[in-house]
Nucleic acid binder design. Structure first.
Length: 858
RNA sequence: GGGCGCUUAGCUCAGCUGGAAGAGCGCCUCCCUUACAAGGAGGAAGCCGGGGGUUCGAGUCCCUCAGCGCCCACCA
């Protein structure tokens, strides 16, 4: 392809991404042994959300690694996944189509959503709802793919998977059934963190603390023979009806006399014991607390360890139950009291209870406002409650020190980039306080693949689930029927009932290596790609995605799912706050890519060090754009000098000039350094070193050899320059290729066959061989003198094209000798008529005196 | 409360195993030069957060304090 007169970045993205697709440039071969494959466990982006520059940032990092490994000769397995599973998709579908899922409805094969979303959501069956989810995510996925192609991700698009597709469902259900068979998955009826709006259980990993206003309410419990009673402080007075005991620290002398006695709760006057437990903090409040079922996780611990009864007053909708527990409704007075509260939300109930306490005189003083941390579901809007429900769990070491130790050991086996991110994994694993709750009371997701037999009264037998054979997977138990039953028996006494729940999205995402690599679906692919080489991801999901993936691989294969984890930082907006949609400061990535060009945006992304939060910086994109243009122009210039026959291998024997050899010696060191950086997953360092070298190469070397390289054919100096230019250009373009794939491909195409992204990574040895053993310092001295001449011209406010009458360099004999070897090039580049070298043994650095020709003589 | 990271030019950040303070942006001055004016050349500008140590020598290693950010924690 010819070198254009005026190289441009415009249109490179479309032109080359089309070409790469047509040529299968990034196709995974799949025919090579595991040792020659580099496989990447790409984070599947949530398609119901929108891509923002944060995605562009971190996916570019991974892409540079993929491209480097491909050029190193590895068969790179780099699929894309779409996370279309879970609540975000459900919510989007509800809003987009104006529907809501009613799992009691039967599937309507001919269902079509209303043209325009109605005001009142239409109820649809689960299969119909899921169908709408799939329809919507397919649209989203097309948009995402377009963006990724525009950005230049070197993904093999034929390997794409989704987290709710058939393959993912099969893998997810198969893994679950095997985990269940090994006793690593179990169900239990237990207090569970519960989101009252989504009406689903929530796992520890999905919690976040939020600072909320609240108030300490001092409340008096009555005690026989003691008019003072016992005063406790609580932020949740509405839970007084659910109080089952008071608790204080065993060493607390104030309350030791009370241990073993009982007190009566305010309002309802129920008798509850006073107990001792180490978790009670004498410093907090009055040092004695009420235990309710359940106000927080500490209540759960006390309830379990002190073997207390359950007195549940909250329903799944977050309102006080209509009917009281038996002991709260055993008198007219108590029933009347209950009626005051029944049906109220937690917030309303609190207000009413405080009023009642004030009336009864059991509220001591005024409530004291405080701000305290309250647990929320990370996607939720109201504080979590704790309700007792039947749920599925997978063992993750939260209740088993042996398993926990094994998983910590896995974390130490894994190579983290940067290394210090391991600490987050360890603190998470060490802080686990229960197994992994994987069931969700939602609709769009992978269903639990089982049913329960119903007894003669229609009550399910949870201890003896009906399991499908693996060949039947994936199944939807709400429409599929267990072996030996008929559809007519669904929900009938003596028949069966489906498990109504779906799995948590992480229960499927945690199998991304298995899904992507074709576990139990494609034995050859699995053997050549698993365990994978690299898991790239952001730091905030170490506790979810990274940890759960390690758990599943450990349980299923007794090994790590990958060897390396590279942890990217966040993109901050220019005010240093985390960019997020809710803050309204998200930048649309496509507009940015089109404005600056993909290579320029990638340049900005790559300049963010591994693991480091990085500000969105358009200035860096401008710099990247300039670099991209410079690469085109420098290539154009070099090719103009060396001619079109430069594509072939360079004969190192032709490189005879000291300056050229010195340049190559430096270049060989650069190759070593950049290669080492990439081996350590430090793309940022790789770019920074390459870029620094390149600008100096343009400013100094190209200027120094310009005249010599233009000499006639047959001139040994010209041949040396041309050979060096060809060698250096080939190396530099390839060092840049992982970072700025479009512009390097364009420049490469002007003189080389095939894609640069399929060319081999530069090796230092041949470059060093061509350099012979020349002292690289002569290049530095030459560049320094040239710089001094430029400075003199600039300070005289003269053009750089101005000729110099005389350039005098004063320096030690040693450095003058270095300079003497390259002085012809220096003279020509400086446009000097004469260069004098003056020896001064005491000189610390070259002193350059420049005598320019008079202005009118130019 | 525990842990991790950060603190270098006005701004954003490099400085790997200790050896004479760096880049880009911004600012100032200049230059159409046969690769590049959506360019290029040059310049000003830093007690490398504070305080101790180790060393011939510390931005770099150790201790300590402070500020910022994040992760984790059974936060009545």
């Amino acid at each position: 392809m010819a070198v254009p007169k005026k190289p441009s970045l415009d249109g490179l993205e479309d032109a080359w991404s089309t070409r790469w697709e047509a040529d299968g440039t990034y196709a995974f071969g799949g025919d090579r042994p595991r040792s020659e494959v580099f496989s990447i466990d790409t984070p599947p982006p949530t398609v119901s959300g929108s891509l923002h520059v944060g995605h562009v940032f971190s996916y570019t990092h991974t892409d540079t690694i993929a491209r480097y490994q491909r050029m190193r000769g590895r068969d790179v397995f780099y699929p894309m996944g779409w996370d279309d599973n879970g609540l975000p998709t459900e919510r989007r579908v509800q809003n987009h189509f104006g529907v809501r899922c009613d799992p009691t409805l039967q599937h309507d094969p001919g269902f079509e959503p209303p043209e325009k979303p109605p005001k009142r959501a239409v109820a649809v069956s689960r299969p119909d709802f899921v169908e709408l989810c799939e329809r919507l995510v397919a649209e989203d996925e097309r948009k995402f793919e377009e963006l990724w192609r525009h950005l230049g991700l070197s993904v093999d698009w034929s390997m794409t998977y989704t987290t709710v597709g058939v393959r993912a469902q099969r893998a997810s259900q198969r893994a679950f059934l095997r985990t269940f068979a090994r006793g690593e998955a179990y169900q239990a009826e237990a207090p569970t963190l519960w989101d009252v709006d989504f009406r689903t259980a929530v796992a520890q990993a999905e919690l976040e603390d939020r600072e909320m206003p609240g108030a300490y309410h001092a409340v008096r419990f009555a005690r026989d023979g003691d008019p003072e009673g016992v005063v406790i402080e609580t932020t949740r007075p509405e839970l007084i009806p659910a109080c089952v005991a008071l608790v204080a620290h065993p060493d607390d002398e104030r309350y030791q006399p009370l241990f073993g006695t009982s007190v009566r709760t305010p309002l309802f006057g129920l008798e509850v014991p006073v107990l001792a437990h180490e978790l009670a903090d004498p410093e907090k409040g009055s040092g004695i607390a009420m235990i309710c079922t359940f106000g927080d996780l500490t209540d759960v611990t006390w309830w379990r360890e002190l073997d207390l009864p359950t007195r549940s007053i909250l329903g799944w909708d977050g309102r006080i139950e209509a009917e009281p527990p038996p002991e709260l409704g055993d008198s007219d007075a108590r029933r009347a009291l209950w009626a005051e509260l029944a049906g109220l939300t937690v917030k309303q109930a609190q207000q009413r209870v405080v009023e009642l306490l004030a009336e009864s005189g059991e509220l001591v003083g005024e409530p004291k406002p405080v701000t305290h941390a309250v647990k929320f579901y990370e996607k939720g809007e109201r504080p979590l409650e704790i309700v007792t429900t039947r749920q599925w769990y997978i063992r993750n070491g939260g209740r088993d020190s042996g398993l926990r130790a094994a998983l910590l050991e896995r974390g130490r086996e894994l190579q983290w980039h940067p290394e210090y991110m391991r600490a987050r994994y360890e603190s998470w694993v060490e802080g686990l306080h229960g197994d992994w709750l994987i069931s969700r009371q939602r609709f769009f997701g992978v269903p639990f693949p089982l049913w329960y037999p119903l007894d003669a009264d229609g009550i399910p037998d949870h201890d003896h689930p009906l399991l499908p054979s693996e060949e039947r997977l994936p199944i939807d138990p709400s429409s599929d029927v267990p072996d030996g039953y008929t559809e007519a028996q669904r929900g009938q006494p003596g028949g069966f009932a489906a498990d109504p729940d779906i799995m948590d999205t992480w229960a499927t995402s945690s199998l991304s290596p298995q899904i992507a690599c074709g576990w139990e679906e494609d034995a050859a692919k699995f053997a050549s790609t698993y365990p994978m080489d690299l898991r790239p991801q952001a730091h905030e999901i170490i506790r979810t995605w990274l940890f759960s993936t390690i758990v599943r691989a450990h349980l299923e294969f007794d090994g790590l799912p990958w060897r390396h984890a590279s942890i990217s930082g966040w993109v901050l907006d220019p005010d240093r706050k985390k960019m997020s949609k809710s803050k309204g400061n998200v930048v649309t990535p496509m507009a940015t890519l089109e404005q600056y060009g993909s290579d320029a945006v990638r340049y900005w992304a790559v300049s963010g060090r591994p693991g480091t939060d990085t500000a969105f910086d358009e200035g860096q994109m401008k710099v990247g754009r300039r670099l991209a243009i410079k690469i085109l122009n420098a290539t154009k210039f070099a090719l103009g000098v060396i001619g079109s026959d430069a594509a072939g291998p360079v004969d190192p024997a032709v490189v005879t000039v000291a300056l050229d050899r010195a340049l190559l010696a430096d270049l060989a060191s650069l190759v070593d350094e950049v290669t080492a950086a990439f081996e350590g997953f430090d793309y940022a360092r790789a770019l920074e070193r390459t870029e620094r070298f390149f600008w100096a190469f343009c400013d100094d070397y190209l200027e120094l050899v310009k005249q010599r390289a233009y000499r006639d054919d047959g001139d040994a100096g010209a041949a040396s320059a041309r050979a060096t230019l060809a060698l250096a250009l080939g190396v530099l373009l390839r060092l840049f290729a992982p970072h700025v794939p479009f512009v390097t491909e364009e420049a490469w195409s002007w003189w080389q066959e095939g894609s640069i992204h399929r060319s081999s990574w530069p090796e230092a040895a041949p470059v060093r061989a061509a350099a012979s053993d020349v002292d690289a310092a002569s290049y530095a001295v030459a560049a320094a003198v040239l710089g001094s001449v430029r400075k003199a011209k600039t300070e005289s406010q003269r053009s750089l094209g101005t000729e110099a009458e005389l350039v005098t360099v004063t320096d030690t004999a040693e450095r003058l000798a270095l300079l003497r070897a390259v002085v012809d090039d220096v003279r020509e580049a400086a446009r000097a008529r004469r260069v004098d070298l003056v020896e001064d043994a005491a000189s610390n650095e070259p002193v350059v005196a420049v005598e320019l020709v008079p202005p009118d003589d130019a």
